[in-house]
């Protein structure tokens, strides 16, 4: 415990670096998944291809990807950019199939009646399709957020600064408290982000609130 109190500034610094690597992939995966999912849904074979590729992509452990990417895209092994790109790919692998399911779950009748009421395609997407797919999309983003925040730590073994450095440093110096602090901080960051996303979802989708709480 005393280690934690003595090193609060270190933990704070790593938390900041952690968020810098975690938040862009979460946001990018969400934003990019929307057009990609719409595209995938427009062709049956494309959708099958995307789902299969995503599944396989997700099976690849993170460290090998962190190691391979620099050789492919020219970033440095220790560059946070490398981590951001890799985690965006994972995020997309999770998010595109989810968004594709989400858009497919919107009833065709509802879309048809929106068109009949005079919604232009873009307006229909923003005002009808996106909100109705919202709960499924939110579910996907929550999984992406938790998994991304956890995966950032793996960069620690390569020397990329994040809360993962507490594990690397802790095991090197034999300080259990340092590792425990890292585990707790990472999990807390993930659960906090998740809780914020749930609250954001309630704010943006008030019609969905009762249903989620009502489940036994």
């Amino acid at each position: 415990m005393s280690w934690v109190l003595d090193n609060l500034d270190v933990i704070a610094g790593y938390t900041g670096a952690h968020l810098v690597q975690a938040l862009p992939p979460i946001l990018l995966a969400f934003v990019l998944s929307l057009p990609l999912a719409k595209l995938a849904n427009s062709r049956g074979w494309l959708r099958t291809g995307v789902t299969t590729t995503s599944g396989l992509m997700y099976a690849i452990p993170s460290l090998p990807l962190f190691v391979l990417l620099p050789g492919l895209i020219g970033t440095g092994v220790r560059s946070p950019l490398n981590i951001v790109v890799a985690l965006t790919l994972y995020g997309l692998a999770l998010m595109v199939p989810t968004a594709s399911d989400g858009f497919r779950s919107v009833s065709r009748d509802v879309l048809g009646s929106a068109t009949a009421q005079g919604y232009a395609p873009a307006a229909r997407f923003l005002a009808v399709e996106l909100p109705l797919a919202g709960p499924v999309l939110l579910g996907g983003v929550r999984v992406v957020a938790v998994s991304t925040i956890s995966l950032v730590t793996v960069g620690g073994v390569l020397g990329v600064p994040s809360l993962g450095m507490l594990f690397v440093d802790g095991v090197r110096r034999g300080i259990v408290a340092e590792i425990a602090a890292g585990v707790v901080a990472t999990a807390a960051l993930a659960l906090l982000t998740d809780a914020l996303l749930v609250m954001l979802g309630r704010l943006l989708m008030p019609w969905h609130r009762g249903r989620e709480a009502g489940r036994p």
Partner: peptide, 9 residues
């Protein structure tokens, strides 16, 4: 939410 590397170390 638990970090893999954290548990291993």
């Amino acid at each position: 939410a638990l970090p893999t590397l954290g548990l291993v170390t």
